[in-house]
Simulated assay, not measured.
Amino acid sequence: MTPDDLAALHGRVFTVPRPWSAAEIAGLLDGAGVFLLTEPQGFLMGRAIAGEAELLTLAVAPEARRQGIGARLVAGFLTEARARQAESAFLEVAADNLAALALYDAAGFRQAGRRRGYYATATGPVDALVLSRAPI
């Protein structure tokens, strides 16, 4: 997948937070410790630096959800993070994204923090939950 492909999929999946542009994705991919995992209908970007891994974004095409793609990508993220010597992992997710919360819970992530009103939506602010997992 090219940055344009990734941005197109990201744009189909996200409104809050806003979708990332191809230039933003390309810039992230050039960053230290950043890695990309892909499936035909989804992708995950992560970063592993100094013993810690961050799941930057996960996007699965709406028509391909509930087929195990997200779970495979998260499992791949944990495997890649371990291979890069990460001892812990974290991510941020909208508190109202129940499907993502269930996915991350099944992968062993637990709430470590809350950023109140972090995301601005058409219906009002939504909290961001910081989830972590250690060891990975």
Rank of each mutant, 00 (worst) to 15 (best):
M1V: 13
P3E: 03
D4W: 00
D4V: 08
D5L: 05
D5Q: 12
L6P: 15
A8R: 15
G11C: 13
R12I: 12
T15D: 15
P17W: 08
R18L: 14
R18M: 11
A23G: 11
I25P: 14
A26I: 00
A26P: 00
A26E: 12
G27V: 01
L28N: 01
L28Q: 10
G31H: 13
G33P: 14
V34C: 13
V34S: 10
F35A: 04
L36W: 15
T38K: 10
T38S: 12
Q41F: 13
F43H: 06
F43Y: 14
L44G: 04
L44R: 03
M45E: 03
I49T: 10
A50L: 15
E52C: 06
A53Q: 08
A53G: 09
E54H: 11
E54M: 05
L56Q: 13
T57L: 15
L58F: 06
L58M: 09
L58E: 06
A59F: 04
A59R: 00
A59I: 03
P62G: 00
E63R: 12
A64Y: 11
R66W: 13
G68E: 11
I69D: 01
G70D: 11
A71W: 07
A75L: 08
G76C: 10
F77I: 08
L78I: 04
L78W: 04
T79R: 15
E80W: 09
A81M: 06
A81D: 08
R82C: 07
R82Y: 02
R84Q: 04
Q85D: 14
Q85V: 05
S88F: 11
S88D: 06
S88H: 03
S88Y: 06
A89W: 12
V93I: 10
A95C: 06
A95H: 03
A95T: 00
D96Y: 02
A99H: 02
A100D: 03
A100V: 00
Y104E: 08
D105V: 01
A106V: 06
G108F: 07
G108A: 07
G108M: 06
F109H: 10
G113M: 10
R114T: 07
R114S: 02
A120Q: 15
A120I: 07
T121P: 09
A122N: 01
T123K: 05
V126S: 02
A128L: 11
L129K: 05
L129I: 11
V130R: 05
V130E: 11
V130K: 00
I136D: 08
